[in-house]
Nucleic acid binder design. Structure first.
Lengths: 188, 188
DNA sequence: TCCTTAATGCAAATATATTGCTTTTGCGCG
DNA sequence: CGCGCAAAAGCAATATATTTGCATTAAGGA
């Protein structure tokens, strides 16, 4: 869930926002999420608690907001044109990253701020653009939509991350990647 | 996330737990989740706030605990032996139920209580037992594991529910059901 | 029935969240 | 460039929520 953006994106408002975000990150490092309180963040950031309450509403929303900025958005691999191994390599990286302690903590923090209606975060958009980059580089081309790739590879990872007991099976994403590409090529 | 079960499952402890859960449900109806407070729940349930804090820890955990009891656990359909249409019918029902306002609210409340490590709720276990019921009734038998069915049909539904903007595409689960069964039969 | 102890009640102490009002300060406009 | 408006932040009083120590109640076993 993304918070209402401040109407003033520069100057003091920006400095406050950065100081608060930095304070949240620092305090999570030092004392952990569970001990985190708004007054403490305010003190560390050099602002008054009411500023935080007025801008973010509550601790949950603030922490969720910070966690979303930790989402990877850049494409992590260089497409080689070989779709199956590109997707498999990326799926492996992605699965390991998400199934790690920091990955799971980030996911937890993001989901705490989910409002139940809109997308919880921009994760799928970032994934989709990387998938599209891999698919358009494909040589020879494959007839696969980004959505079907996401459903086949990333949906099981994300679903199990949240709804199954940890850790994820080794190679879950990798094998799904080979499978979805093989199926597409077989039906071509 | 399931809470630590009271060591005394009967008598007064049980009555308190039921009264508190009932109070949460009633107050959510009357004033909505966002206005909910622990002292208010305590008053309605006829207990003191400290009882709630000691048993549940905080409001988020309590609401999550209540939401988990709304999870459907009974098998919603009668398997006919025709796997594809059984799975498709169920997927349709499931998708519509989850993508509804109460379904999304339940999911949101459950996820707020997720600790990031164990399964957020027993949802997948319930799903798996229904899938297994359908698969074992299959006539003729199909070579499909419950996990692959869940990955193909339910993972996309659950992933999109949380990480994509609402609503889900019509027939998402239904089509996935036909597809996964067709693929299994083709490779047999 | 009695004993043990988990669970609750109660109330004081502490911490957190809200709010009205004031002050600061971005930012548009002449 | 500096004026003025309004958004954002500060401050402090208030309201509300959470924690905690100790007393009391009542499950559940012997």
């Amino acid at each position: 869930m993304s918070m209402k953006q401040a109407t003033r994106p520069g100057g003091r408002s920006l400095r406050v926002q950065q100081a608060v975000h930095a304070a949240v990150r620092a305090l999570i490092e030092e004392i952990g999420r569970d001990a985190l309180t708004v007054p403490q963040i305010a003190q560390r950031a050099g602002v008054t608690p009411s500023t935080i309450y007025r801008r973010w509403g509550d601790l949950m929303t603030l922490v969720s907001d910070v966690a979303q900025r930790n989402l990877r958005t850049e494409c992590p691999i260089e497409p080689t044109g070989h779709v199956a191994s590109d997707l498999a390599a990326w799926a492996d990286i992605y699965q390991e990253e998400m199934d790690s302690t920091p990955g799971r903590e980030m996911m937890r923090d993001v989901l705490r701020g989910w409002d139940g209606t809109r997308a919880a975060c921009g994760l799928l958009d970032a994934v989709r653009s990387t998938v599209e980059a891999i698919l358009t580089t494909a040589d020879p081309p494959v007839s696969l939509s980004a959505d079907s790739v996401i459903d086949a590879i990333f949906a099981p990872i994300l679903m199990r991350l949240v709804f199954a007991d940890a850790p994820l099976p080794q190679g879950l994403g990798r094998e799904a990647a080979f499978r979805v590409v093989a199926t597409a090529q077989a039906s071509a």
